[in-house]
């Protein structure tokens, strides 16, 4: 008991998906602490090229959630272990389209979620972050 919690950075197995390192941004892709994994906001990055992929919104959401799965699995967790999700869209009118793709990734017992719209950087159509239980 009272053992001090320590934090460790999470790295994706695919280095092209380490968006913060590729873009020299002051954050890590994720942090593991205790029972939890906290991921940074993830955006649609093509896992083949590491480039932002500004395809139609459904595909942007699909790429982002696929990358989130990769990030969690790299850390020994999985989409099934996600407890909380924040979905931010650049355009509020894309909500239904986002939901449609989102359901494919969380078909049963989905995480708690909040979704809204606000300005996003780099022309991204979506940004998605999550908290998951560690493996």
């Amino acid at each position: 008991m009272n053992e001090k919690l320590s934090r460790s950075a999470i790295q994706p197995k695919n280095p092209l998906l380490n968006a913060s390192r590729v873009g020299n941004l002051p954050h890590v892709p994720g942090i593991r602490v205790g029972d939890y994994i906290f991921l940074s906001g993830m955006v649609p990055v093509d896992p083949q090229t590491g480039e932002r992929s500004h395809v139609p919104i459904a595909e942007q959401v699909r790429i982002t959630l696929s990358n989130m799965r990769h990030m969690l699995e790299s850390a020994g967790s999985s989409l099934e272990r996600v407890v909380r999700v924040h979905v931010v869209l650049a355009d509020i009118s894309h909500m239904a389209e986002m939901d449609r793709v989102y359901r494919e990734f969380f078909p049963i017992d989905p995480p708690a979620r909040t979704a809204w719209s606000m300005q996003l950087r780099f022309g991204n159509g979506c940004e998605i972050e999550c908290v998951a239980l560690a493996g």
């Binding site: 407890v83 999700v85 939901d99 969380f106 989905p110 995480p111 708690a112 979620r113 909040t114 908290v131």
Partner: peptide, 18 residues
């Protein structure tokens, strides 16, 4: 109708949807 659970318990915390 939402693809979200109203709340999820994970470890010591309860995470409640928006």
């Amino acid at each position: 109708g939402q693809p979200a659970s109203m709340a999820v318990r994970g470890g010591d915390f309860l995470f409640v949807s928006g």
